[in-house]
Design a protein around this nucleic acid. Sequence first.
RNA 1: CCGCCCAUAGCUCAACUGGAUAGAGCAACGGACUUCUAAUCCGUAGGUUGGAGGUUCGAGUCCUCCUGGGCGGGCCA
Length: 564
Amino acid sequence: MLKKELKEKVEQCYMELAQAEELPQADLPKGHLISVPKQEEHGDFASNLALTMAGPLKMPPAKIAQALQNGLVRDPLFSKVEVAGPGFLNLFISDSFWQGHLRTIIQAGRRYGESREGENRKVLVEFVSANPTGPLHVGHGRGAAVGDSLARIMAAAGFDVSTEYYINDAGNQMQTLGRSVYLRYLEHFGQDVEFPKECYQGEYIREIAVRIAKQEGDRFISLPFDECSQFFIEQAVQEISQGIREDLEDFNVHFDNWYSEKRLHSSGFIQDTIQELQAEGFIYEKDGALWFRTTEFGDDKDRVVRRSNGELTYFAADIAYHREKFQRGYEMLVDIWGADHHGYVPRVKAAIQAMGHDPKGLQVLLVQLVNLIQGGKLKAMSTRAGEFVTLREVLDDVGTDAARFIFLTRRCDSHLDFDLDLAKSQSQENPVYYVQYAHARLCSVFEKAAEAGLIQDRDNALDELLDMGEMDLSLLKEPEELRIMKLLASFPETVAGSAAALEPHRISYYLHDLAGLLHKFYAKHRFVGDDNVLSTARLVMAGATRTVLANGLAMLGVSAPEKM
RNA sequence: CCGCCCAUAGCUCAACUGGAUAGAGCAACGGACUUCUAAUCCGUAGGUUGGAGGUUCGAGUCCUCCUGGGCGGGCCA
């Protein structure tokens, strides 16, 4: 990756100058970094080394920069090195570098954008993990898009990534769920029942009840709930989970593993974990309950892990679950939660620390809730009250591509107003089409190139281009071309940065920028024109651009259509 | 009362982890299809980055306080 090379080059240059006693000796500063200036006139890259060394060297930054400049200009990679502003080194890269890089992109193909920044670290990304008590709503959709894309991005950046869905199929909510279906079942057979407020109100509950009634008949109507709760719970969980899996599948979200909380209970692993913690002195008894000293690790108050009635809390299961994740060998855990669970972060981190892990080994990404807007007003969402817009509904309205792109074009910690009417009617103005259209246009360029006889086989065009003998990439020197080539070269860094910061939205913005440059070029110049040598060179650029657009869209889980 | 998150163009959002003159898309206005897809492009307009201090060569970004909005604070999940 270019930035890294440049950083080394600049630092190497300083070391040589220090060696030659042209500059005083000092340690390299931590704050040195290579950035991309906002203004094109400020070069392709800028180094702040002189600024960060002004203090240690006790010299004016401009003077240090000048010495570095004299050393760096000798490198053929640079077409120009300037000292600017308070002491920046502006680095201008030779055109030939960018031109040659196009071949690198095409050679790498699907793999372009990958890097080894993650150093093969084992990471588990856990997301959605919605309770199997109802269909996924839009908020879950956002978490799903973020988690799934982040996993893809981190994999590309060289992490060894697995994804997991934690199924909360234990606890009180299961009783409530079963009872809800049971009561609807009784209603179906004409019994007059009181349907409590705390039960799940959604229509899907009735649908499950009706299905059971059809299959099983009325054989449960004389049984009290306690005697058939298991059956109703299992049926409901099974059916709802199936729906969730289908929704996610259609949303292009895939999990490597589905992890059942119930199994965590039945295996005795939670009890075992509590005993371990107790042995370490982190657990104490008060008022008949067992408490975890999370305050020792910065939490506001201690938390109950086993209630006085003997039941384990959700938190207890969570501790065991995270312990088990580490036991499976993961070095880094990424949890994606709804922001309404933010109060949980300190206690789970406390638990991890108590178990001897670095709290930084768990990164919790809090995804802000989605505000759904329909008819200009806010829609309330509550699973219990049964008032929610499901992910399914949104998918049917807007489609997977648009929904995913909208979710991924915002930072996680900013609220998202999802305007359904707009998303539906917006089909022409939706940002996702801007990027997809760029890809489709490039595909048709290749079709045109095949017609013109520049390439033989449209499907293997990229391989063909690489094998072509006479090729003059130095013809690519229009400003629009250079901008595209430069942005293409920064794709791997963007992916690595997106992974490191756990910010998938950076890929969306990158793609939008790239599509913009492509559209600008397209309006001003022609890929396939009268000059065959120039056209061939431009086809190489088209191929490289198409590759990056396709790879980036794949990371977002958005399709890259050949025609629109 | 306490804690976490947010506040940037009329609207929805960016800003590469502290860098140079804060950028896109919608919406508004004016232009561009005989040419590889006009789901596009070009131009105009739009800002005291909620407010006040502080840290330093340098702040939308970091620290403190204030204002306004969201979400939490159970032996619920």
